[in-house]
Design a protein around this nucleic acid. Sequence first.
DNA 1: AGCACGATTAACT
DNA 2: GTTAATCGTGCTC
Length: 211
Amino acid sequence: MPRSFFSRDTCSVAQALLGCKLVRVLDGARLSGIIVETEAYIGEEDLACHARAGRTPRTEVMYGIAGYSYVYFTYGMHWLLNVITEGEGFPAAVLIRALEPKEGLDVMRERRGFQAGNLLCSGPARLTQALGIAAEENALDLCSKSSGLWIEGGPAIPDDLVFRGPRVGLGRTPEPWHSIPWRYLIQGSPFVSKIPSQAKKIDASHHLTRG
DNA sequence: AGCACGATTAACT
DNA sequence: GTTAATCGTGCTC
């Protein structure tokens, strides 16, 4: 996708990424999957966003150019993939949380330990393991195929098929950030990481504005 | 220099 | 339902 796709409001990007195809070239093999679940992390005020700590060596890429990758290490063993959004100088990103595998499933199964079912790419750390995404894939330009990692367009997902809910795994993150519905997924997809117990209506009080 | 914790997962009871 | 695995990061002393 062109840079302009990522250089806009993070929630719009998070929703628009649903249905797009994430492509990875690994050792000459093409691996891909349809993005079915994302989350938005927006600015220093969002206490769930790593940029809450301001500019640090780790968060520097979040302040950079939209369309670049932000890959970070967590829980002592997992790598998670984000795409930077909005304008240069404003730290925001979309976390890719789940894919519906499309190409290179044999390679993915091998990398994942031949696990069965829909668990190949259904989770932010599962998909990075399946696609071979780690430290070396941080700060790559996903608008360029030379990075070996990019995003292709897909059919737009109708609004009534998009579920919004609270982000996952936020632990002790305080309100309103804990409950703000910045998680997006394709309703009914068996490839999402966790199926929400119920569709949560979008609460106007959670619709925060910023200058 | 030391510490608490994490945008998770797999394997348990 | 619970918990171990495992270490970079940012914060406090």
